[in-house]
Amino acid sequence: MKHGLSKKSQTFLENLRLYLFSNGKDEKEINAIVEELEDHLMEAEARGKTVDHIVGESPKQYMMQLSNEMTTDTKTWVKFIILILFGALSYSILTNAVNGQLSYSLLEILGSIMISLIFIIAIRSLFKSVAANSLSKAKEFTLFYVVGLLPIALFVGLFYFNRLIETPIFHFGSIGTILAVVLTLGFLIGMSLWTKTWVMLIILALLVFPDFLFRYIDISPETQLILSTILTFGGISLYLYVNHKMSKQQTN
């Protein structure tokens, strides 16, 4: 259906979808308006009009106009927030349990929640600004990468603060640790079946796998840290990007 459209119109529709999604709009409404505009653009282009004629001088302003009239569906975003929060928790439990018994300080628990929330807000504003302003591919990629690295930087910060400041520590013990791991794995599999997406398992595998790999390869710890960071967050960015492209193709 879409191949009849000019590149510029296609880009506009893609950006509109991303913008509305970042604003937490109802998915059904997003699909409805994107389809309607696609139909309109096809007919307009067949008669020699361009996307500017339909959207006006400022696509950003037009996107805002549409967004203002549409229903915000916070449920989708709450689902994402829960998914990311529990994803971070699962990661922490799995990696720590590999190294022994689980124990967390109060600062670690609160800090991790904060970092997850900051990451969610950063991703959301990133999507919005990429959609509304037409940036070059290089700039876009850099932004995605920087935001991808943000949580790592914050977690490193938390790691050091945790050594400096003493807060109460919760110990799990050996039975508690096993229980936590079983619960986490159960939760992950259940979540993947329920959401019909393996995103959490894939991302967690990307996070845990490099560390396992480097246990068997003899390189310096510094190189290890850098390589595993690049592998993990490069892998996640790539996965999200491919996934985003694929879901767009499906809806069209």
Partner: peptide, 14 residues
Amino acid sequence: SEGTIYPLLIRMQK
């Protein structure tokens, strides 16, 4: 611009 009708149509539907 032609697109102006869509935000209006969404509102009128609501």
